[in-house]
Design a protein around this nucleic acid. Structure first.
Length: 227
DNA sequence: AGCTGATCATTG
DNA sequence: CAATGATCAGCT
């Protein structure tokens, strides 16, 4: 993707400052600084913006199951918003386990650990704005409040109960108040193993946990209120 | 217009 | 195939 890359931030304060320093810049300016080619659209590079920010902020790259900033325990999430600060897309968190759920709990779940601390970087990204002209908004670091954690716990329990009962294929994006379970795969033919109500393995479409836009919108608004 | 289901690239 | 990074786009 690029010939250069930022160094790994040494503290949360340094990471936040680095993120704040690029607020207001366009993706085009950022890409040019790092000699990264800007795609005309994201049809075939849906993760381009996220990877660009990883480079700029010095995240440890790779598809390892660790936070983007390992030493700091912080996950980086870009959040596409419109000019009014409303999220345009749900936020993917992680793949959902569909087997080996005996003894699973929200407290120990991968998803909870994954979003325990997040650096949100809003991007004004209405589709009519060319990629290069999209602007980086005001970044901030967030951890779920007790209330937010509770809301996610409720949804996680509902969705996980259905998975355990072998009803994963009955789950739709409508389930859950703040979390949802949706396909996360190369295509609709992809398969992963799940367990049916009789404990027998079967193949089904891989799913992921996503944060609904109303939830991320509230996180955004809460942050502004607390400024 | 918003949302749900589908999809794309890359790496280990 | 699973995990990383997400957005696309047709349907309601």
């Amino acid at each position: 993707m690029a010939p250069t890359k930022a160094s790994i931030p040494k503290s949360e304060a340094q990471l936040l400052q680095r993120a704040q320093n690029i607020a207001g810049l366009s993706l085009g300016e950022m890409a040019t600084r790092y000699n990264i080619v800007i795609p005309k659209n994201l049809n075939k590079e849906k993760g381009w913006v996220g990877l660009l920010l990883e480079h700029v902020l010095g995240a440890s790259a790779g598809s390892r199951p660790e936070p983007d900033f390992v030493e700091l325990g912080i996950e980086l999430k870009t959040l596409p918003i419109n000019r009014n600060g409303k999220p345009l897309e749900t936020t993917f968190v992680c793949v959902a386990p569909l087997k080996n759920l005996i003894g699973a709990s929200w407290q120990n779940s991968h998803i909870r650990n994954k979003i325990a601390r997040v650096l949100w970087v809003p991007i004004i990204a209405e589709r009519e704005i060319p990629i290069a002209e999209r602007l980086i908004g005001t970044p901030f670091i967030w951890s779920p409040s007790p209330e937010e954690d509770h809301l996610m716990a409720l949804d996680w329990q509902e969705l996980t109960d259905m998975i355990v009962l072998g009803q994963v294929e009955q789950i739709t994006g409508k389930h859950g108040q703040v979390l949802q379970l949706r396909p996360k795969a190369a295509n609709s033919q992809a398969k992963t193993q799940a367990i049916d109500k009789n404990g027998k393995p079967f193949l089904t479409l891989p799913r992921g946990f996503y944060l609904k836009t109303a939830f991320t919108h509230q996180i955004l608004k809460n942050h502004l209120r607390l400024d």
